[in-house]
Design a protein around this nucleic acid. Structure first.
Lengths: 186, 186
DNA sequence: CTTTACAAGTTCCAAAATGAAACCTACTAT
DNA sequence: ATAGTAGGTTTCATTTTGGAACTTGTAAAG
């Protein structure tokens, strides 16, 4: 499979990666959250080739995570600022940071710490349930087919990565009949 | 800069991406969390070339996110299972999923839903402060230089992506003197 | 027996993505 | 007149991919 086709997978991880899942894009976004806005700043900070940077910034603008704003006409100069869609990547960056802090320490300690303005304490952001507030780990959660998958199964499409067990159990429980003669993939 | 050098950046995002920041690795890990363990399963599910899959699985084993366990001797056949280090990637995948659910819907709705076993409710995992439990967004948090950066500044190294302002403010406040004649990068 | 299937790779090659360095354009400051 | 700054673009060699075919050892089917 070509990476270009990844955005049409029936999977939110795959679709998200189609936008931010290449070598440099998340580093560009990291810089955005630290206040970087201009081409040269990104380039010096990240150290990627100008070539790639041009391309990645354009894609982020195309995908509406960044907005390009001209701050000067002659010669034309622009800044790249996060949109809401871009701001929403925050949890991804925070999670990556948390993992790096824990597992990739080089012996000097955590590079950057977070301080929660609200409670005025150092914080290590964690995942929690938006309903009860409890912390969430892989074992605390059950994955259930959502409408995005059920609809496709009803149409006879079979997204490959979903364990059939999962969907069949669910279909049975919900008394939905899924035509089982249809083929995988849509 | 070469991608291979990215793991020595003074940045937890960069270091984490040096392990999981390529096209396919996070999809492999996604599958792991859904229970996939064997080569053929990964390959069918993800649709990446066997070539790459071999390589990515090996790297995940090298980096200790997966453990390779032989389940049969002749011919030798093995499974790949998540270690604690691998399990800790969970928040990253959940965050990617959340973003995809919100911004990359194809019109059919969310592919997979989460159900929190603890409170028995559907849940959308959110980031929160591990101290006070409040939800955290980009504006609720102040980034502060941690030991991993301070140490390097003391040694005269200047990690490029950190806004100098940030470190200088901090150094002043903490009354740390940082030799300003030293060069960036270490 | 002989053929087919399965699982987990490996090999080979063409096509695509990347990195480095040089170049371009339009100012501004020295 | 010269150098510097900002934001790119161009060129070209090197790396990384994707795809398809091949390998190895075993078991099951005809």
């Amino acid at each position: 499979m070509r990476w270009n086709d990844i955005d049409s997978e029936v999977c939110s991880v795959a679709r998200t990666l189609s936008v931010v899942g290449d070598r440099w894009t998340l580093l560009v976004l990291r810089d955005c959250f630290l206040g970087t806005r201009r081409f040269e700043e990104f380039q010096k900070s990240i150290g990627m080739s100008r070539h790639r940077l041009t391309d990645r910034l354009n894609k982020l603008v195309e995908n509406a995570l960044l907005e390009k704003k001209q701050y000067q006409n002659n010669p034309p100069r622009s800044e790249y600022v996060l949109t809401q869609k871009g701001l929403d990547i925050y949890p991804v960056l925070v999670s990556l940071t948390g993992w790096g802090n824990k597992w990739m320490d080089d012996g000097d300690g955590i590079p950057l710490e977070y301080h929660h303005k609200g409670c005025d304490h150092q914080t290590q952001p964690v995942l929690s349930c938006d309903h009860c507030g409890e912390q969430l780990g892989p074992r605390d959660v059950r994955v259930v087919p959502g409408p995005g998958i059920i609809e496709k199964f009803k149409r006879g499409e079979r997204p490959v990565y979903i364990p059939k067990k999962l969907v069949n159990q669910y279909a049975e429980k919900m008394n939905i009949s899924l035509d089982d003669t249809a083929n995988k993939k849509g």
